[in-house]
Write a protein that binds this DNA or RNA. Structure first.
Lengths: 114, 114
DNA sequence: GCTCTATATGTCGCTCGGCGATATATATGT
DNA sequence: ACATATATATCGCCGAGCGACATATAGAGC
């Protein structure tokens, strides 16, 4: 109902799903790559997040298939999921820009009266 | 000992402290402004985070003073805190840039074969 | 004087998310 | 037979976020 604010892990899941649908195990690898190896999703994190994102209407089931005898369940972004991801990305970019400005300013003037 | 990965709240606390030392109540206001009103730190969050950041060596006590009969405890970044904040900011900026590229690409080609 | 709001610190307990351990199943390699 | 990799899913622990509460001062309004 009330969409909880995105944690980094959930944001990365949405971002990973942006170009095309992915299945669970593939998502873990995609998120790891997107974050340069920093975020390694645990199984509990992944399926818990997927349930929540599904309940919030941001992610939905795409299709299921069997590859090499192994079952894969593919998920994709909903329209709302895409909108939320876009908005969150803009928010993130603005925060990063603001942070850089603030750091540059504090380097020159560590104190207000400096 | 082992510095846990920064949540958004802790990151904003570090960022707020970058230009100059701040006291608890002022930090709550600063973080709210830095995040455009989106992140409103609860008291439990603030002092819990301050304890953790202190234990990790990122934040330390600056000084204490009484203003208008009210006690204020000021905190400031350590050198390590400044380094961590800078690194985290760069990571954030890179992620945001990567996310924008990924979104732009998926808008043109929703599917690999599109 | 009493109450409410704002400022200021800090604690306590609840809830929820992250995550490793575990279970299940198939394919491959040694 | 055993280990490794792929693949899904559940369980319970732990820790972070957070509201509620306690405490204290200052000022406004009645």
């Amino acid at each position: 109902m009330k969409p909880s604010p995105l944690r980094e892990q959930s944001y990365l899941i949405l971002l990973a799903l942006a170009p095309e649908p992915l299945y669970g195990y593939g998502l873990i690898a995609a998120v790891r790559e997107l974050s340069d190896g920093r975020v390694k999703l645990g199984a509990g994190t992944l399926y818990g997040a997927l349930d929540r994102l599904g309940a919030d209407g941001l992610v939905t089931l795409d299709h299921e298939e069997v590859v090499d005898g192994r079952f894969r369940r593919y998920y994709k972004l909903t329209d709302q999921g895409h909108r939320v991801l876009t908005a969150e990305t803009e928010r993130l970019a603005e925060l990063a820009a603001r942070a850089r400005r603030r750091l540059a300013a504090s380097r020159v003037a560590p104190r207000p009266a400096g």
